[in-house]
Design a protein around this nucleic acid. Structure first.
Lengths: 108, 108
DNA sequence: ATGTTATTTAATTAATAGGTTAATTTTATG
DNA sequence: CATAAAATTAACCTATTAATTAAATAACAT
């Protein structure tokens, strides 16, 4: 899967976004991350794997625990894409040129 | 599905992102949008339905054709989320406070 | 009325996602 | 050494996604 798709589909799940939100307040272990959710630990573990392979988090082994940290670079990839298109779309829709072009296309 | 999840999962598919990229250059009908892809028309039609229910595009009936247009507001929702977290994460990782907090958490 | 163009809906299939419980690995501790 | 804690892996189930082909609908052209 391409990195951008991986990032967006990682972000598409509310549980994973909540995990990221929690991690924005500081690092946490898997059990700490799982605590607020009423899903099983293996389910959380899989969510973390998704976030990790999208490079949105990083894990450090620490005794038997695995501490999770945010990895902000990956979000930047998505952020760049969204910003680029945000800008393109706004221009594309504000521009008189495009407006006229659309009218012309719509006419034939 | 919540709007943010809908937007991110719509953006998670490369075909759909390509369709959006095409639409950034101007409106297009379903057949025009389908042309560059070697997937069937029904497949494209379903992708458009996904984009439409995420409010990323809008469709106008025009004789037998359906003209698709970008709908930039929805991207803004995603853009806002990404920007918020981008900012939070950067702060969270740059801040000495958080760094020390992480160290302390990591120690016990 | 018939055929053509543009698109959607229906029915089906294969793959993936997200969840579960049970078993396993690794490290720590009585 | 036996047990507990932390997390992952395995095996499994179900729902959703993305694709297909075939049929249906709608508007227009002849």
């Amino acid at each position: 899967m391409d990195p951008l798709s991986a990032t967006f589909s990682a972000l598409a799940d509310p549980t994973r976004r909540a995990i990221l939100a929690r991690l924005a307040e500081g690092s946490a272990t898997v059990n700490e991350l799982a605590e607020p959710f009423d899903i099983s630990l293996p389910a959380v573990s899989r969510h973390l794997k998704v976030l990790e392979s999208a490079n949105l988090i990083r894990r450090e082994v620490e005794k038997q625990k695995r501490r999770c940290f945010l990895q902000p670079q990956a979000l930047k990839t998505a952020s760049d894409w969204v910003d680029l298109y945000s800008r393109m779309w706004t221009e594309s829709l504000d521009g008189l040129e495009k407006y006229l072009d659309d009218l012309k296309q719509a006419k034939d």
